[in-house]
Nucleic acid binder design. Structure first.
Length: 574
RNA sequence: UGCCCGAUGGUGUAACGGCAGCACACGGCCCUUUGGAGGCCAGGGUCCAGGUUCGAAUCCUGGUCGGGCAGCCA
């Protein structure tokens, strides 16, 4: 027997269904966001699951606005959601729907249920209904309206629709089992009165179906075969099944999977909303947020989000995914695709003493070593350059391969230089200029005699430099699980905000980057991946740092400073 | 304390009664005109206790721990 193909449990179920000819072998899925907020990377997981499975099994995936609650939903979100889904690379084709377009059908199904004696209009006030429902440990109490004749319920329900009653006066409830250990089966509400204008349906309705009643019907009407949702809906499944069974209509299979939790961020709509409302971040597309809009502005490619979704898999285990995995997916894609350029985010002036003041020349730089077809570009060079402040030390620590008095390094693509001295500000002690002499025979950066030059640093010609603003982003929170910590320690998520999550610095970029297209993605050599902010302007570019490069030197330095080692500790066994 | 779901290296996952594998992270080495990328190596895991079986991560029982459910939200 052949070793079974590795598939997640969802795909296994779908494959089995297809194999045994369930749903005529068809696969139809759907992504049903409620248009009351922006999509985030957790939604991307659901999106990816639905669209990928549809594609893999030759089916289709619908995009559906689950707009059954007019008081929280807005048209603004509908367009934002469509834009984000499209940007992520998913195509719903013709299949864009609104749950509200099915309101008339849902209403008819509700009447059918009433007629069959499976639903009734209940006039218990909300507080009393809550009491009657009871608690999980004990059976609930039946509503006095439970056994009212179907004809009476039907009349009342029609008058509800006609607008004869105020909000909350009565509801339509399913007649199931008030003693069920599953609260959702204790005669759940199917319709409520809401005198509110609907963003899509307008003023047509004043009664609206609840999620439980609407969702299974939406799925059924659209011919969905597999309805994926998150774990918290597991206890709703018996109700989903009950409604469809009573009505005897097409019955999709609901399958629950674990939602995504990402370390060092928060994912709930409520928490994200707070961060925006309270100004902890600037907007819904703030690059520190895990929203799709935020990730896009941060410079995260959609391909990286999709491959991340493949990496995390699908299970029923509620865990916490390390954001390092997302960062890996981002670097992996950008390393192959992002053109390289040179930028200096913390400039230090470097003067090449033996390079004539009046001269300048340009060197050919490789655009992408991972992709020869990306070609090369000329980079201007002159006597005065900017280098990274981190790339010079007066007293270099062990294994430091960069510039220091007397040390030789390679200026990337240009030449070899040896440090001859430096100058400091007499008052502040800050280093202002580093002096070097270059080896004229090392044009392009190769050592003429084959001598080993271990360090290579990046640079920008001062005369040609374009000033640029860099938004350096770090993790939004200082703890891996801010939401859990807040919940269990009675604290607030804002207690864990990283004050360093955004640092704005001014530096320079090489002239080829003077007017980058908004949202274009680059690797600044030795620094990281950056994305031109939408607000970048020609001659005044603004870049958002997507993610740093992996940096084994800074890791080493951090380790050394954190752990002084046995010698520094001064401990000797004898 | 009712019901439902879950538990495999630090993290995310695979193995569907037959050699516990992969990825990320972490550590070491090689290579390098990005301390990037790439290559190589190493460490580290089946929640616990019983049972069934020639054989259990997998099946059964009990426990422990974690999550969900008491909106006219979704």
């Amino acid at each position: 027997m052949q070793r079974p193909e590795t598939r997640d449990f969802v795909r296994q179920i779908v494959a089995q269904d297809v194999a045994r000819g369930a749903f005529d072998g068809r696969v139809v899925t759907r992504f049903p966001p409620e248009p009351n907020g922006y999509l985030h990377i957790g939604h991307a997981k659901a999106l990816h699951l639905n669209f990928s499975i549809a594609r893999e099994f030759g089916g289709r995936c619908h995009l559906r606005m689950d707009d059954t609650n007019p008081v929280t939903e807005e048209v603004e979100f509908i367009e934002a959601i469509k834009r984000d889904v499209k940007w992520l690379g998913y195509d719903w084709g013709e299949h864009f729907y609104h749950a509200s377009d099915y309101f008339e059908q849902m209403y008819c199904f509700a009447e059918a249920l009433i007629t069959k004696g499976k639903a009734y209009v209940c006039q218990l006030p909300p507080e009393v209904w809550k009491e009657y429902r009871g608690v999980p440990e004990k059976p609930g109490k039946e509503s006095p309206f439970r056994n009212r004749p179907p004809a009476e319920s039907l009349d009342l329900f029609r008058r509800m629709r006609a607008g004869q009653f105020p909000n909350g006066a009565m509801v339509l409830r399913a007649k199931i089992d008030m003693s069920s250990p599953n609260l959702h089966l204790r005669d759940p509400v199917l319709y409520r009165i809401l005198h509110a204008e609907h963003p899509h349906a307008g003023k047509k309705w004043c009664i609206y179906p609840t999620y439980d009643f609407a969702h299974c019907l939406e799925d059924s009407i659209e011919g969905i075969t597999h309805s994926f949702c998150t774990l918290e809906f597991e206890v709703h499944r018996p109700l989903y099944d009950w409604i469809l069974d009573q009505l005897g209509i097409h019955h999709p299979k609901q399958i629950e999977f674990a939602r995504l939790n990402l370390s060092y961020t928060v994912m709930s709509k409520r928490q994200l909303n707070r961060l925006v409302e309270e100004g902890k971040v600037k907007s819904w597309d703030d690059p520190r947020l895990p929203t799709i809009a935020g990730l896009r502005r941060r410079g995260v490619p959609p391909e990286a989000i999709r491959s991340f979704c493949d990496l995390i898999g699908v299970t029923k285990v509620n865990g916490l995914t390390d954001i390092a995995l997302l960062e890996h997916a981002i670097r992996d894609h950008l390393n192959r695709r992002a053109p390289r350029a040179m930028a200096v985010i913390n400039p230090l002036r470097l003067v090449i003493e033996n390079y004539p003041e009046a001269d300048e020349e340009s060197f050919q730089a490789v655009n992408n070593p991972e992709d020869p077809s990306a070609g090369t570009r000329p980079v201007p060079f002159s006597r005065e350059l900017f280098i990274e402040r981190d790339d010079f030390r007066i007293e270099p620590p062990p294994k430091y391969h960069r510039l220091a008095p007397g040390r030789e390094v390679r200026l990337r693509y240009a030449c070899l230089v040896t440090c001859t001295g430096f100058e400091r500000d007499p008052d502040r002690g800050e280093i202002t200029t580093v002096y070097c002499r270059y080896d004229p025979r090392s044009r392009g950066g190769s050592a003429p005699d084959g001598r080993k030059v271990k360090g290579t640093i990046h640079w920008v010609s001062a005369r040609h430099a374009v000033p640029a603003v860099f938004n350096l982003y770090e993790r939004l929170f200082t703890v891996a699980d801010p939401a859990d910590r807040a919940k269990h320690e009675g604290r607030d998520i804002t207690d864990f905000l990283n004050p360093q999550s955004l640092r704005v610095v001014r530096g320079v970029v090489e002239p080829s980057l003077g007017a980058p297209p908004p949202l274009s993605r680059w690797q600044f050599e030795r620094l990281g991946y950056f994305c031109a902010d939408p607000e970048t302007r020609p001659g005044a570019p603004v870049f958002n740092r997507t993610v740093t490069l992996r940096d084994s030197w800074s890791r080493r330095e951090r380790k050394l400073s954190a752990d002084p080692g046995p010698l520094a500790a001064g401990i000797s066994p004898w």
